[in-house]
Amino acid sequence: MTPFITHQGDSPIILGMPHGGTFVPPALTARLNEVGRALADTDWHIAQLYDGLLPGATTVQATFHRYVIDANRDPAGASLYPGQNTTGLCPTTDFDGLPIWQDGQEPGADEIAQRTVEFHAPYHAAIAAEVARVKARHGVAIVYDCHSIRSEIPFLFPGLLPVFSIGTNEGKTCADPVTQAVAQPCFAASGFDAVLNGRFKGGWTTRHYGQPETGVHAIQMELAQRAYLTAEAAPWAYSPDTAKPLRAVLAQILTSLDTLARSGALSHA
């Protein structure tokens, strides 16, 4: 299986989806334990959730699961959240801190390097190519990184996660008008809650590509899965009725970003 799937569009917006894939090579599946094989930390149905919300948006989707290698982690292995519980480039635990590999089957340094070459690097080469293509056409590009997560994970954060967690690495990865185009609909949405640069400030994708001074803006959206799944447990079923209000807000966000990027305002933001 190819490490990524790209659908090119004519919008300035690129949707990155690093954690929606569920492919694990059979040889690795055999080494996972029961916890790991459940793939519970998937961004379930993230492509379906965003499908059709912005005609013309480019999408780059990783097909491999984050337990193979996490496409939203620094390939050098540096922690994105020093001092806080998190999972690494090639995770050894799930989001609850439980081991995912059978005893003695955790990947070593050489294997991690090989997985980086085989999966992580091609996915990011695809994103980089789309950033270059889109910027050449529009003068700017906005990388909108699509994520979702269970609403309650005590190992990673206390309490109930807001439906919308927006990350810009404290304003470093995009111009303020981009932040506002995303944040305003979230904070105004009835029945939803939101936070800006809370527990999730943007992963490696956002921090790597977000260079607003060059015309490339990046922002991460982490969604609580209660807003679109039937239940936050296996079989992790998508609920169109539950998702409908959420999709309406997401469509507003993406339309606003597209309008902003086409307006020329970001060329001197």
Results as ranks from 00 to 15, higher is better:
83 G>T: 03
163 V>K: 06
171 G>T: 10
43 D>V: 14
45 H>S: 13
132 A>L: 10
182 V>S: 09
42 T>A: 11
149 I>C: 05
117 V>Y: 05
82 P>N: 05
64 F>W: 11
174 C>N: 08
113 A>K: 15
111 E>F: 13
91 P>L: 01
162 P>T: 00
59 T>P: 07
145 D>T: 02
36 G>M: 06
137 R>K: 13
36 G>L: 07
56 G>W: 03
166 I>V: 15
150 R>K: 14
145 D>Q: 07
155 F>D: 01
108 G>A: 10
176 D>H: 10
51 D>Y: 09
71 A>N: 12
116 T>P: 01
134 V>W: 01
144 Y>E: 04
59 T>W: 01
76 A>K: 01
87 T>G: 02
167 G>Q: 07
92 T>W: 04
100 I>F: 05
68 V>L: 05
148 S>E: 04
39 L>I: 13
92 T>N: 08
48 Q>P: 00
106 E>H: 04
168 T>E: 06
69 I>D: 07
106 E>I: 05
180 Q>K: 14
47 A>Q: 02
135 K>E: 11
148 S>C: 05
44 W>P: 00
84 Q>P: 00
165 S>L: 09
99 P>G: 10
130 E>A: 13
72 N>L: 05
157 F>P: 00
180 Q>S: 10
40 A>H: 06
36 G>E: 07
100 I>E: 00
69 I>P: 06
167 G>F: 13
172 K>I: 08
89 L>S: 00
65 H>E: 02
56 G>V: 12
68 V>A: 02
46 I>E: 06
113 A>E: 11
99 P>D: 12
101 W>T: 08
138 H>G: 07
78 A>M: 04
150 R>I: 03
148 S>K: 03
162 P>M: 13
169 N>F: 01
47 A>E: 07
170 E>M: 11
170 E>I: 08
62 A>S: 15
94 D>C: 02
176 D>V: 06
79 S>V: 11
149 I>G: 01
114 Q>A: 15
135 K>Y: 03
172 K>T: 15
112 I>D: 03
84 Q>S: 13
143 V>Y: 15
85 N>M: 05
147 H>W: 10
35 V>Q: 06
85 N>E: 11
110 D>G: 02
64 F>L: 10
78 A>N: 00
107 P>E: 02
73 R>Q: 01
84 Q>T: 07
166 I>A: 06
66 R>C: 08
104 G>V: 02
37 R>K: 15
178 V>Y: 12
136 A>K: 12
75 P>G: 05
151 S>V: 08
66 R>P: 05
166 I>F: 03
57 A>D: 12
128 A>G: 14
65 H>D: 08
162 P>L: 11
156 L>Q: 11
64 F>E: 14
128 A>W: 04
136 A>S: 13
151 S>Q: 10
159 G>K: 09
83 G>E: 04
57 A>E: 10
